[in-house]
Simulated assay, not measured.
Amino acid sequence: MDKLKKGIEEMQNHNYEQAARLFTEAIDENPKEPVGYINFGNLLTHMNDYERAERFFNRAIELDEEAATAYYGLGNVYYEQEKYTKAQEQFIHAIQNGLDEADVHFMLGMTFIHQEYVKLALPYLLRAAELAPEDVDIQFQYGLCLAQNGQIDQAQQVMERVLQLENKHSDAYYNLGVVSLHKENPHEALKHFEKALEIQPDHMLAAHAKGQVEQALNE
């Protein structure tokens, strides 16, 4: 097994020192090969060493301006530091250079969400949802974004899909409750809020919504 593969394995097993040693050796042996720098950048990002991670990703890009995963890694570095505009630029570069995977579309969508550009987020979260139909987080964020864009029926369908994937997803139940209120069905909403609280008793939003619906029904 080559050093990069072994290093990735060590990183996945949280043996960061071993991974760092293997990546360093790989870079020393092939200093003009960007992949070593990209892997080391990913490792440093895992370790929250963003300053050094940024340097490694930039070095990879110097060696290969079309290294899509280097742009993606750099985007993650900025995203973790809440520099969403800078992250966005890098994720777009990654996609332009041929990275068409769920994660990069999802992360790009989330940079827009954090900046409250929900309309701009929607096509990227849709693409991520298409590429990763079994990913609960991606499906949930896509459903949420649909709701924020006023596409209530589609949001309902996606939240129901989330519950098929994970039947104890309290936030999906809460959001189905909100959808039911939009459709002026308070009894249905109450059931969803109760279900959310059954799964997560400290769900503040569900508890508040449940109280308001019960009060309205009793009046």
Results as ranks from 00 to 15, higher is better:
A70W: 05
Q81C: 12
K191I: 14
T111A: 02
K191M: 08
L131V: 00
S170C: 10
N58R: 14
R55M: 09
L126Y: 13
L181A: 09
D100A: 09
K195E: 14
M159Q: 07
R161H: 13
V136R: 06
L146P: 01
N167I: 06
Q141G: 06
V179A: 13
H187S: 09
E188M: 09
N185V: 04
Q154D: 15
V158N: 03
E89P: 01
L165N: 07
Q148M: 13
F56G: 00
V178Y: 03
L144I: 13
G73W: 10
E184C: 10
Y72H: 15
R161Y: 14
A68M: 11
Q88G: 09
R59E: 12
G109H: 03
F91G: 06
E66T: 14
V158S: 12
L122Y: 04
A172L: 07
T69K: 13
P133Q: 02
F56I: 05
A60F: 03
R127Q: 14
V104I: 06
Y72W: 11
Q139I: 04
M159P: 02
C145M: 06
A68C: 10
H182R: 15
L108F: 06
A128Q: 01
E51G: 10
Y79C: 03
Y79E: 03
C145I: 06
Y72T: 01
L122N: 07
K83N: 12
Y142G: 00
R59V: 04
K183T: 02
N185K: 14
N185D: 15
Q90T: 04
P186N: 13
K195Q: 15
A53D: 02
A147C: 08
E101Y: 09
N76K: 08
D64Q: 14
N185Q: 14
Y71D: 03
A87V: 10
E188K: 13
R59Q: 15
E166I: 02
L146S: 07
A155W: 10
D135E: 09
Y50M: 04
L163E: 13
N167T: 09
L197Q: 12
V77A: 03
N167V: 02
Y117V: 08
E65I: 05
Y117Q: 12
E89Y: 04
N76W: 01
Y124Q: 15
Y117K: 09
R161V: 07
V179W: 05
A67Y: 08
A53M: 07
H187I: 12
Q88V: 11
R52P: 00
L99K: 12
D64E: 12
I138D: 00
H105S: 12
I92N: 10
F57W: 04
E62F: 04
K183Y: 03
T85F: 12
N97G: 11
V77M: 03
A68D: 10
L122S: 09
A172W: 00
M107L: 02
I152R: 05
D137F: 08
E54F: 07
E194I: 06
L131K: 01
L144Y: 14
Y84G: 06
E51L: 02
Y72D: 11
H169V: 05
G109F: 01
E66K: 15
E184W: 07
N167E: 14
R127K: 15
L163F: 07
V104M: 06
D153R: 11
D153P: 11
G143M: 10
Y174M: 04
Y72S: 08
F106V: 08
L131F: 00
D100R: 08
L120N: 09
A128F: 04
F106W: 11
G177T: 03
E65V: 14
K195T: 14
Y173E: 15
V179R: 02
N149D: 11
N185F: 13
